[in-house]
Design a protein around this nucleic acid. Sequence first.
DNA 1: CAAGTCAAAAAGTCAGACTTATATGTCACA
DNA 2: TGTGACATATAAGTCTGACTTTTTGACTTG
Lengths: 233, 233
Amino acid sequence: MTTPGRGLHGHVLEALGPAIAAGTYPPGSVLRTDELAQRFDVSRSVMREAVRVLESMHLVESRRRVGVTVRPKAEWNVYDPQVIRWRLAGADRPHQLRSLTVLRSAIEPVAAGLAARHATAAQCAELTECALGMVAHSRGHQLEGYLLHDVAFHRVILTASGNEMFARLGDVVAEVLTGRTEHEVMFEDPDPAAVTLHVHLAEAVREGDAARAQALTREITVGALQELDILAP
Amino acid sequence: MTTPGRGLHGHVLEALGPAIAAGTYPPGSVLRTDELAQRFDVSRSVMREAVRVLESMHLVESRRRVGVTVRPKAEWNVYDPQVIRWRLAGADRPHQLRSLTVLRSAIEPVAAGLAARHATAAQCAELTECALGMVAHSRGHQLEGYLLHDVAFHRVILTASGNEMFARLGDVVAEVLTGRTEHEVMFEDPDPAAVTLHVHLAEAVREGDAARAQALTREITVGALQELDILAP
DNA sequence: CAAGTCAAAAAGTCAGACTTATATGTCACA
DNA sequence: TGTGACATATAAGTCTGACTTTTTGACTTG
């Protein structure tokens, strides 16, 4: 989706990362650099670079005389986009999807409120355009086109919030939305009510109505939570 | 605070990372691995490992025939604890502190609401203990002790939410709270109203009152925003 | 049985030679 | 004058083998 395995060490990561994320090597497992280098048919230098990257993600810890041990899940850098992708590709995809959707429900309403204050004219225009695109693809099994505009819509909101931390979650939201369309039940056309909410949200941001923007986004995210049977009554 | 520079490549990172985060090498700057290796007096292998880590944080991009170029700030993995620490140590510390406080204001209320539902008895006890500790250190310039319990309090809330993404923000909140006490204006004793809010929040969680927990946390974070003159009227 | 000692194991480090991709400049040709 | 193909220099990428350092677990010793 973003960057494929650049260089040999990248290929190794593309194989090892998902395996660790999926629990193939449970926490506490010990790997040896030399053995891994042999297994992947690369030199030790390349293998060491790969291990360094995994270490920077807190997926593993490398210690002398011991080897490379897999860390407990609770210590992983779960905000690293690559770790997120690896986990979404594995077994605990549903669990990860839930965590991320709850995260969305916390972030996006606040981001929308800020966007209503800070959005530029260009951003407002783009937002309206995305909303129109969603409407245009909301009927007749045009899920791909709908998804494209949906992702773009939320990305603009997060960016327009003016907060760098929010902006960086654009990729995460994209993964969640894409995942929902691809893997989960999404055979039918999208809920018309959701589409309307997006159109109204674009209006609210354009008019600078922070409170309404926040409330509308909260409705959208509640819908996303309900889809996954996460009730917050 | 967490992990000091382990190994030679760690020392290099401890020097290079903060420099890049501080803008010493502005985005677009080109570095050469060989030159860096000479400058830090390490072998190329070690330097390459350091560059790989910086690359995994999206701080730099390494391309053949070009060198190691610094990426634009907007692409950095700003959720990486190490990146956060590096940025907090540098010039845009105030800006970073604001971003993170806004993030807190979005996350913590939701986390508190979830904590009220999911917290175990042990977590409730720990929460009450922390709140009592805050009260005990709230007068007479015992800022260090107060901070300690404040950090622990918020960490328990985030963990008790049961959401791994929230839980991992414990370190971030710790940095923000510590930074506020250390660098910002924090000469006087903490606001008594804030202390009371924490005590009440512990109560609300213990009683499983999600709505009240959320509302109280919102008040707490609004206070944090006001301290930094971030008004959200 | 405690404390000190030793040897093996694995990561860490280094130096050097070689490979590969690619940005850029050069030159012929239209 | 512009445009294409081609050559070249450059810096990252890779591999290898030897060496160093830390740490652990076993073994010895008082």
